[in-house]
Structures are given as structure tokens and as C-alpha cells.
């Protein structure tokens, strides 16, 4: 079977077409077209939708909704999403960012998927025609997911409340040794009131650093204050081993980089 692309005006019709065997959804092409180029003959049909809502960014009242086809470049240059620009720019080089989409990033296996790490820290919801799913649930079950992701939504953190760090061997474009995103709220006395920390490359997909989050509550962002969180940073993780780094290395340097991010 030769490869064939079908384009649909609505997500609904595209979803119907995706029920056929051998089909995959075409977002930016950075995952699917690459697989086809490399001889993955399991995919014979590519499906895409040109529904305009997939390509829009809506920001209102602190709520953000990003269409699944929105590219990393569009996020990085959006005036209201400055806080996320660093995470969007963490993906690939300039050409990849003009192609790679938010929807696609949710499916990118580690060490890819840096923006999904940010979305996990932001406690985003993932929308399909079937409704909304918390991102954590979505990521856990993504391998079996067939419904087209239409958008992601989240609440913009207050100024300075979002932190992001990507560690790579090659600069400025290398893929991740690990990536860390954190949404922190601090009480007036400076202690941490709430924390969501997401990690990339510490599993085959983005994961929460739950133990570190809990250990931060009520603590100040000082070397002593964060020490228990750093000690617990890799609890429950299973870092990947790949050509970039071993699980051992990722495990060893996670607390170092998390510490630097928290003290920055």
C-alpha cells in the first residue's frame, strides 16, 4: 500500500477516517512523516483536518486554549504566552518549531516532548471530540488513544510562577538529557504554598515529581529549604537510557538541575 493523505474540513470527519486500519493522524509531520520516510510500512493512510479551531490560540481571563495544530513557533512568539516561550523554544531548531505542533508533542516519546512536560506542570486538560481529559490521565493512556486531540487548555500561572529548564548535550538545539517544568505558588512569607513539578526523560513520557512537590510545601526556596525535595526528586521515576545519557546519569543529575531551577 502506498502512502496516501486524506484531508478533512472537520475533526469529526477526520476522526471517522482514523478508524480505518493503518491510518495515523498527520500533525506537523515531524513524527509520522519521519516514520514513513524511514520505512515504517505499518502506516499507509495519513489523515489530517484543516478545521480552523485547531490552529488558534485563545487567551482570556487568565485561561489559555491552544489548538492542537498550533506550532511551537506560534506559541513562542505569542505576546500573551511569554512565560511559555522558553518551553516552546526548547523543541528542535527553527524549522522544526515551525512544524511541530502542540498535539504532536503530547505523543512524542522521551527524550522528545519537552513542551508536554510544561503542559503537565501547568495541569493542562487535553480536549478531543469526546471531551476533556486531565493531562496526566491522557499521557498515561496515550498509546491507545485514537481520537484526534483538538486543543489543550490551562490556567496561566502568575508572573514568575512558571519555571522551565532543559538540559541538553548539544547547544542550542540538542535533545534532552532531561527537562523540568515547575509551577510554584509562594505564600507572602516566601514559603511554598503549592508546587507542580513535571519531568521529561525520567520515564518514557512526562511524569510528575510527586514526592518532591510534597517535600516543598511550607518550605522556603533556599538551599536548606529545598534539600528534602531534591533528595526525593527521582522517587517513583524510571529514567530512560538512550544515546544521550544513561538512567544512572539522569538520576544523578536530576537533583542538581532541579535545585538550580528552584534557586534561580
Amino acid at each position: 500500500m502506498a502512502l496516501a493523505l486524506q484531508t478533512f474540513a472537520t475533526v469529526n470527519d477526520a476522526n471517522a477516517a482514523l478508524k480505518a486500519a493503518g491510518t495515523r493522524y498527520l500533525g506537523g509531520g515531524t513524527l509520522v512523516v519521519r516514520a514513513a520516510n524511514e520505512g515504517d510500512v505499518s502506516v499507509s493512510g495519513l489523515i489530517r483536518s484543516t478545521e480552523p479551531s485547531l490552529s488558534t490560540i485563545a487567551v482570556a481571563g487568565g485561561k489559555v486554549r491552544i489548538g492542537a495544530s498550533v506550532t511551537m513557533a506560534a506559541i513562542a512568539r505569542h505576546p500573551d504566552l511569554g512565560a511559555l516561550a522558553k518551553a516552546a523554544r526548547a523543541v528542535g531548531g527553527p524549522a522544526i518549531r515551525n512544524m511541530a505542533t502542540v498535539g504532536g508533542n503530547l505523543f512524542a516519546p522521551a527524550p522528545y516532548g519537552d513542551f508536554a512536560v510544561a503542559l503537565l506542570a501547568l495541569d493542562a486538560t487535553v480536549s478531543t471530540d469526546d471531551g476533556e481529559t486531565p493531562i496526566e490521565t491522557f499521557l498515561a493512556s496515550r498509546d491507545g488513544s485514537r481520537a484526534i486531540v483538538t486543543s489543550v487548555g490551562f490556567t496561566l500561572p502568575p508572573q514568575g510562577g512558571f519555571r522551565f529548564l532543559k538540559v541538553s548535550r548539544v547547544k542550542p538545539k540538542g535533545i534532552s538529557v532531561l527537562s523540568i517544568a515547575a509551577v510554584l505558588k509562594q505564600s507572602p512569607d516566601g514559603t511554598v504554598a503549592s508546587a507542580r513539578i513535571a519531568l521529561g526523560c525520567m520515564a518514557d513520557r512526562p511524569v510528575r515529581a510527586g514526592a518532591a512537590e510534597r517535600a516543598l510545601l511550607g518550605r522556603t526556596l533556599t538551599a536548606d529549604g529545598i534539600a528534602p525535595a531534591l533528595a526525593a526528586a527521582s522517587d517513583g521515576t524510571s529514567p530512560i537510557t538512550d544515546p544521550i545519557a544513561s538512567a544512572w546519569y539522569r538520576n544523578e543529575v536530576l537533583p542538581v538541575h532541579l535545585g538550580r531551577l528552584l534557586l534561580a
Binding site: L5, G29, V33, A73, A95, I96, N98
Partner: peptide, 19 residues
Amino acid sequence: CSVIIDGELRLSCLTLAET
């Protein structure tokens, strides 16, 4: 394989012609 499509840098190896 970089080309410029509608003013943006794109990778022609990952872009389907019909798009």
C-alpha cells in the same frame, strides 16, 4: 532540505507536497 514556505523556514523532507 530546508526551504522557505510562506515566509517560514520548513523542512521539505517532512512536509508533504500536497499540503
